[in-house]
Design a protein around this nucleic acid. Structure first.
Lengths: 337, 337
DNA sequence: TCGAACGTATGGAGCGCTCTAACTATCATG
DNA sequence: CATGATAGTTAGAGCGCTCCATACGTTCGA
């Protein structure tokens, strides 16, 4: 049997269809008696409003489209958790589209959402060009997370990558390290500010001549390769700041397999605080980004735009924090000194 | 300015609204000339069909609702990848709802999808009771992944957990191990069949008196605790089959920190093939479930139901496989013998 | 030459809602 | 006692599409 409609509920309750509509939307100015009659009729018939019809008629969906480009990345999971809770609070729901790690995938997810007339879109770590994002923003509000976009048309939420790098380096310097190398993330997202953050922190500590950057790719094997280069060089650093945890884990493996101890011979700091870093077997000191908070912030920005509370682009920046675990310690020659 | 509608396109192309509709749906029996005229008009106006209106009118959404209960679990990411590709092939799109690791969350995600009139629902690793799933299946087709449901009303896709356990144990036996212990997953999903699979494989190899099961919880720390118990017992096993990778990693850490070598002193096999297991620093031998394939299968089942190609519940079972890495080897006393 | 048969095109009635304007009571106000 | 206010309710016109029934040529066999 077909699902009951408003018409059916109205008939059952002996009122007009419009009144049922008002009750379903919790509108004021409906007498308690009628409200109850409608509620009873609805639950008796097992009525649920058809969201398609509702959205079509009201030209509002109260839905945020979230485009993530890689479900495998734990970064997204946490961000989406924040998004979810923010949306629920604001009276919105979210649906997630998978970008499948490709621009085309992202584009098609965005198009799907556009077709569904979501009220706003939140793109997490988008691969898409800024121009494309701006052009979408002509149709509906769009906020980008984990990606800078120089435009007033789209809001962004980012963490302060340079600050994160400084936190890492300052932690090492605080422990007494001076020869601190950096394995970077090449052209990966966030790699540049982390690299320059490292440079600046070293300079600020008067360690400019110790600056040493070896190229990486944000992958485990690139981290391993970077570590090999460092060990093969004449000068072995006492600490390494690696641009992300994946690379750091690769580096860690190489260093230990060469018979060196961590943190005894070399201290290691990663970046991202992925779940593997928390495993006791790794216990990697790293930089954590408040991803849940970023999700909530993104949601707030989106809702503000939708409800006309903001018109100009807002570029929100959150602060990362240092998570000290077991891969960092005072350098050996200083122990007891 | 408001988005253009079919009406606008029709006017621009000098045809009726119905014809535009036919063209947008790639219907046959439209002359090439008109088809082109409509296409041109549409792209000139930047027209995109309103999915809400279309779905409302056609009473079909060509959309599959996917409910995952924990975005953090890599299990879901891969399954969703399979789902995605299966759906795309079949001409469907998917939207993902987050169950937030709670029954209530799952319920609300399901309700959202019901309101949106998705054509079918796929629930991945649902927490919800079988009864609830069956009751939903009265409204629309529903397929459960990673969860057995004894009912013809809902289709399921599962991997053969007992076979996976046998693969693990037979691998160890094949290497020459006889004293093989098992750290289980308690009441967790899949723990029971893995445990009994272990038992049966041991018996089948005439090793019934070597059977030893210590309780676990599928968590890293429970795996660590299980390993401690095993090491503290008078008899140290030469191999341990752990019910999942998280636990196995906990066990691995404890074993190595006691100065024992893996696989030299003890071989270790996990289950799930999570991404951390593939890291060189772990390199855990484990059992892999073909999750992408499971996603594709789930999608196929859903589409078959939607399109009336199947009416009875199908319970699809896929085969796991062994992934040999570096935590298993011939037991020490046998080396060279 | 007629009409059956086909390939094309169109009008219009929905799909299940929202929302505006209007209408009906009820009630205090001058 | 007419006069607004105000609260509660409703009719009806959409929202932007699909799809059925119908109409309009052509073409073809009889």
């Amino acid at each position: 049997m077909p699902r009951p409609t408003m018409e059916d509920v109205a008939r059952q309750a002996g009122v007009s269809r419009a009144l049922v509509s008002l009750v379903m939307r919790d509108a004021p100015n409906v007498s308690a008696a009628r409200r109850k009659a409608v509620r009873d009729a609805a639950s008796q018939l097992g009525y649920r409003p058809n969201a398609l019809a509702r959205n079509l008629a009201s030209r509002r969906t109260h839905t945020l489209g979230v485009v993530v480009n890689d479900l495998h990345n734990p970064f997204f999971a946490e961000t989406v958790d924040g998004l979810q809770s923010g949306a629920t609070e604001a009276g919105y729901r979210i649906i997630i589209g998978n970008g499948c790690r490709s621009e085309a995938g992202e584009s098609s997810a965005i198009e799907t959402f556009l077709d569904y007339r979501v009220d706003a879109m939140i793109v997490v770590g988008p691969l898409l060009s800024a121009a494309r994002l701006v052009s979408v923003s002509e149709s509906i509000p769009i906020v980008a997370v984990g990606r800078t976009v120089r435009s007033w048309a789209v809001d962004t939420v980012n963490s302060d990558e340079a600050l994160g790098a400084r936190l890492a380096v300052d932690h090492l310097i605080g422990l007494g390290h001076r020869d601190i190398a950096h394995i970077d993330g090449g052209r990966g997202a966030g790699a540049a500010p982390r690299r320059s953050g490292y440079r600046r922190a070293m300079k600020a500590a008067g360690l400019a001549d110790m600056i040493r950057v070896v190229m990486g790719l944000f992958t485990e094997s690139s981290g391993a390769y970077g570590a090999e280069q460092l060990l093969a060089s004449g000068r072995r650093p006492t600490a390494v700041f690696v641009a992300n945890d994946h690379s750091a884990i690769g580096a860690l493996d190489v260093i230990e397999s060469k018979g060196l101890s961590i943190p005894g011979d070399i201290s290691l700091v990663g970046y991202d605080n992925i779940s593997a870093s928390a495993l006791r077997h790794m216990s990697l000191t790293t930089i954590d980004q408040p991803r849940t908070e970023m999700g909530r912030a993104a949601c707030r920005l989106a809702v503000d735009r939708i409800e006309g509370r903001s018109v100009e682009g807002v570029h929100h920046v959150v602060e990362p924090s240092l998570v000290v675990r077991s891969t960092t310690a005072v350098p050996r020659h200083q122990v007891g000194s």
